[in-house]
């Protein structure tokens, strides 16, 4: 089966002007995404996890063409989406939709819910009559659990969870094949998070969508993801089946992240040990040489500073010179 989208060495670099610099001096470069590769099958869910600032949103925005990127992102039909002209990209814009992080901020406060949800439809299906648009919008509202008779209300009249449902309806109205959810629940109450995640899962199954589900917490994507990609400072650290990754994390960074997740399973006592993640996220303007994680890694050796580890390992990919399960010594050290 050909992947729905196949990303190779995706890179996004921002020019950051130095404060007080002269206009012609060279801006500093910020590598927000530094060579990310993955395949996504139709109907599959890929969880993307990483700390704040690791480049998850930028990766999403690169895939959807909102920021200039280099590398390749090949769609199922063989078209490379990177660097596609806006006119050619338009077709794929209806295939790839996005759900945003801040539910209220992603809705235009001056538009009614109906107008908001209809916008992609009006943009991509120009032949539709007004009545048809309205019917479809109402259908979609019903589908995401909103009352269709609220079509004339404004975003500020809805709760955060409902706003996110509006965002989901807007993403799904053009029947995309891939929906990128950028931390769709991190701004919501915990009680509502589960509802929205379940809704996404249901809709995905019903519509056969592929999902890229971004979160900064491994626990959020656990149940919805088929595979999980762990990102650190713009690079992939580990990419594996969700089951394998949660049961047997091989990368020290994933292990540290997982140890911070409370697991309500008494049989897995060992995972409750906290592995401290010392230090701070280095600046993406000047990332560490070799392995970007080495400044915080408990296993770091000299080779980690000189050579960048490649992402390898068949189905369970790891970018680490010393991958593998936690050793008894490490567990003891974690206490």
């Amino acid at each position: 089966m050909t992947p729905l989208i196949s990303a190779r060495e995706l890179r996004v670099t921002f020019d950051v002007p130095q404060p007080g610099a002269l206009p012609w001096s060279k801006p500093r470069q910020l590598h927000a995404v530094g060579g990310v590769s993955f395949d996504l099958m139709p109907g599959e869910t890929l969880g993307v996890v990483g700390e704040s600032g690791s480049g998850k949103s930028t990766l999403a925005r690169a895939l959807i063409g909102l920021v200039p990127a280099t590398g390749r992102a090949v769609w199922q039909d063989g078209t490379d989406l990177i660097g596609l002209s806006p006119r050619k990209m338009l077709k794929y814009r209806s295939e790839i939709q996005m759900v945003f992080q801040d539910p209220l901020a992603s809705l235009d406060p001056r538009m009614t819910v109906g107008q908001i949800i209809a916008e992609p439809l009006v943009t991509h299906r120009k032949g539709l009559s007004r009545a048809e648009v309205k019917t479809r919008v109402k259908d979609m509202m019903d589908r995401v659990g909103l009352l269709p008779n609220q079509i004339n209300r404004y975003p500020h009249e809805f709760s955060g969870g409902q706003c996110q449902r509006i965002g989901i309806a807007r993403a799904l109205i053009v029947e995309p094949r891939l929906v990128i959810c950028d931390e769709p629940v991190s701004a919501l109450d915990v009680s509502i998070q589960a509802q929205v995640i379940n809704l996404m899962g249901d809709l995905q199954r019903d519509l056969g969508l592929a999902l890229i589900f971004i979160a900064h917490d491994l626990s959020v994507v656990k149940h919805i993801s088929d595979r999980v990609l762990v990102m650190y400072l713009g690079r992939v650290m580990e990419l594996a089946e969700a089951q394998a990754l949660y049961a047997e994390p091989r990368h020290p960074y994933t292990q540290a992240l997982l140890s911070a997740v409370p697991i309500p399973d008494p049989g897995r006592e060992r995972a409750k040990r906290m592995i401290p993640l010392g230090g701070e996220l280095p600046s993406p303007m000047n990332p560490p040489s070799g392995c970007v994680f080495r400044t915080r890694c408990p296993r770091a050796q000299a080779v980690c500073a000189s050579e960048r580890p490649a992402l390898e390992g068949g189905a369970h990919l790891t970018a680490c010179h010393f991958p593998g399960a936690l050793t008894p010594q490490e567990l003891a050290a974690a206490g």
Binding site: S94, Q101, L107, H124
Partner: peptide
């Protein structure tokens, strides 16, 4: 740079 503008751009609104 507000998200709703980004959302419109992502949707392909000219």
């Amino acid at each position: 740079h507000r998200e709703f503008i980004e959302a419109a751009r992502a949707a392909g609104v000219p």
